[in-house]
Design a protein around this nucleic acid. Sequence first.
DNA 1: TGATACATATCATCCTACAACTTGGGCCGA
DNA 2: TCGGCCCAAGTTGTAGGATGATATGTATCA
Lengths: 244, 244
Amino acid sequence: MKQRLAAIGTVETLPHRVAAFLSREIESGELNPGTRLPTEQELSEKFGVSRNVVREAIAQLRADGIIEARQGIGAFVLAPEQRAAIRIDREALKDTHNMERLFELRCILEAESAALAAARRKQEHLDSIKAALDRMGGEERWEEGSIDADLLFHREIARATGNSYIHTFISFVCEQIRHSIHYARLTNPLHDLVEVNVGEHVRIYEALVAGDPAAAEAAMRAHIVGAANRVGVKLPTRKISGAK
Amino acid sequence: MKQRLAAIGTVETLPHRVAAFLSREIESGELNPGTRLPTEQELSEKFGVSRNVVREAIAQLRADGIIEARQGIGAFVLAPEQRAAIRIDREALKDTHNMERLFELRCILEAESAALAAARRKQEHLDSIKAALDRMGGEERWEEGSIDADLLFHREIARATGNSYIHTFISFVCEQIRHSIHYARLTNPLHDLVEVNVGEHVRIYEALVAGDPAAAEAAMRAHIVGAANRVGVKLPTRKISGAK
DNA sequence: TGATACATATCATCCTACAACTTGGGCCGA
DNA sequence: TCGGCCCAAGTTGTAGGATGATATGTATCA
């Protein structure tokens, strides 16, 4: 009854907005662990929504393990380490520093996974990885579909590790990055970038075919550093293990 | 009005149960991506709950990106790679194979993070890591609190990387493992295990103090393989990068 | 003083109603 | 016959109230 703005084209629902607001308040430390949240009625009045909406929002936070609701008492903020789900705030990813950190995490995950995949891949995996590679460099080269194929390439490598958790985590991180990248900030002419990008993928694929873990890891690491640079995120090219 | 069983001590709410049921149906492949779910009314009749409960369940699945609901049409199952949250099924972790995979993921994350931490740690981080180490080997040595201190040690190292995403991911994975481990299957007398465990932690700490990334990575890798073995999970001691 | 019973506060669930949106079919006119 | 418009039905989104379940503090009474 209060906020009838954004009535058109609003994709995110009211419960989602309320949950995001509370979540942000908890993350920022305004609501410390152990704190009791306002009652559902107070929240519904504060946001100008029905109690039903508040309940759906709280249900989501509770499912994530961020808060705990106890009948007859109230809802309390939990300690951050006991959350049951990982969720990445896309607003925060608009900050380049955060995007840089996410790329760093991706690099860790994918580099070692590429090595694992090189050691364990079966012919079936090589086939689907090759298929993705062909789509990427083929006729869809300049289309939106090329980005899909790029992601698919990475996901298929993750799948080749035979470890479903690795697959899940890598898919998740890649998807978050994809949704938050400003493709506008490409650093070079598009044509050159595509050439370089496809070339890096080919090198990874070749290492997988050869079954060479060290080469696969190195190629993947170089690729992710390059991919980050191409979208305007400078990633420190730290190489840690092995001889200097 | 139908299922008044489990009225006492019931921690999980009706929406949670409905969400779990639907989620499992999707995971198992009975509801393929693209499929339309039954209407809210049909679901409420099927489960014998109110439409409100169904809505809360659907709100959770939607927040995770498992399904997408569109006003006026219905709710549809989404492809697994575009989900917005990572959630690990604790039932699945009762299978040793899955636990082994999760340990493998943890090893990847923590080994490289230890190297990062060695390069970036400040005195403040070393202090809090040392504090956790002391608690672990101190008087709480035989208590439940020792496990808390163990986890804290790892979380503090993750924090020393200065990368909040790495911290979040590692905390999450460690917590999932902790909740699902059967400490009953210890492979050796408790006393020996604690000695070895503390010793491994000390070696990691020393590498961090020395600021030696390669040593920190190696020590962490050895520790996690050891920790897995101690709880009955055999982890292949694969070492990939560097010279053989 | 101590224990029991009651009042209150809060979440959990249910119910009904209406608004917003999509789809499909029927009606009407050309 | 064909094409466009409008309306009706179905579905999700939101509102608001009613009742049950549970925990806590208070007041009463032995």
